[in-house]
Design a protein around this nucleic acid. Sequence first.
DNA 1: CGCGTCGCTAAGCGCTTGCTCAGCAACGCG
DNA 2: CGCGTTGCTGAGCAAGCGCTTAGCGACGCG
Lengths: 213, 213
Amino acid sequence: MGAAAERAKAENEEWAGVTPDAARRLVGAAVQAFAERGYHATTTRDIAGRAGMSPAALYIHYKTKEELLYRISGIGHEKALRIMGAAAEAGGTATERLADAVRTFARWHAEHHTTARVIQYELQALSTEHYAEITGLRRRTDRLLRGIIQDGADGGEFLVDDVPGTTLAVLSLCVDVARWFTADGPRTPDEVGALYADLVLRMVGARVTDKNG
Amino acid sequence: MGAAAERAKAENEEWAGVTPDAARRLVGAAVQAFAERGYHATTTRDIAGRAGMSPAALYIHYKTKEELLYRISGIGHEKALRIMGAAAEAGGTATERLADAVRTFARWHAEHHTTARVIQYELQALSTEHYAEITGLRRRTDRLLRGIIQDGADGGEFLVDDVPGTTLAVLSLCVDVARWFTADGPRTPDEVGALYADLVLRMVGARVTDKNG
DNA sequence: CGCGTCGCTAAGCGCTTGCTCAGCAACGCG
DNA sequence: CGCGTTGCTGAGCAAGCGCTTAGCGACGCG
């Protein structure tokens, strides 16, 4: 299986929850198009074309183009929230949980940079109601990360002056991976995750136990 | 002078090099509109309206809507490059230069978050030639920052495993300020600059000389 | 005054956009 | 077989887009 085929398969699995098949193909096509050109520069004809359909077929599965973006945003942000939740609720020290959170969160933004770019940078195109709903998911993700950092600061593992500010910076750092990451760059998603986990542990003043300790 | 008037004045000074007056007003209007809605969602009628003109007047000063974005991107990226250059070429230790670079660079992205958002997140709307030109400016900014970090690593001031990766992360952190910063948030641009300078010094393993040392 | 120039506007052109609608082939069910 | 349902297409509508063009009032200059 070639690299392109593998990527297509991974992208298909990402939207496994979307049925029927045509609706899933449309979501995949929309993510690609939105990530490449942006929401407003993408036409419904383009999306339908990529999914192998006529423009009219799109409207059987989605009421509007904005609904497609909303569905993508919802699924993507829920996945991001689950990743952060898994790390926050795992056992271990605050240092271990923070490293795990940043490693998996940053890695996901690299591996799924197409989806991540759409859900992080095209939010403003959502309707007011949908925007508010998605913002709620992001606030929950933020709270989980802040909880880990607060734990570490309270327990003396971390040396942090400004917990909300540091949380914001860490989240910002991970999210922005979606902007610059490309599959043909020099770094794999795993490497990005490892690098970022290391950098963030330094940011919070955690004692690093590897070669830099 | 009210806050809004002060902001308008600051925005006017930002484009002082653009003449005549009508062309400058159009640039200001375009920056606001692009930052709010994005390039593709902004109409030439909207830009002209904000500048107090008819749609046709825009085309006396700029050949296309894209040229407006190109001018804004050029001026903005040159300013960003100058900020990074001033810090890189100043005297002092690598630690001092890095702190200065991050403080001023992050602060500019907060203070001019409207402009910064446009030049950092609407680049893909540029023509191929213009995009290449702007990318050149960004590479120069990147090289300046990498130089500082490399100096600190070589001289033993910093403990950095991956200089290009760390440079990328620092730049990404500062740039992303433009995405989340709002004037009505809890932090001033100065505070963002100070916080980010502290966080970045920790990332590179610099010895911190203040209360955290 | 006469006349060209400059900055601008009202009107609108050609095109693309998001979206709709009538109709059609395939299918399941009695 | 008959018939409704499902998933889709070809054609196209109203609206809005970037951009153009003809022309107008204010001004400087001789």
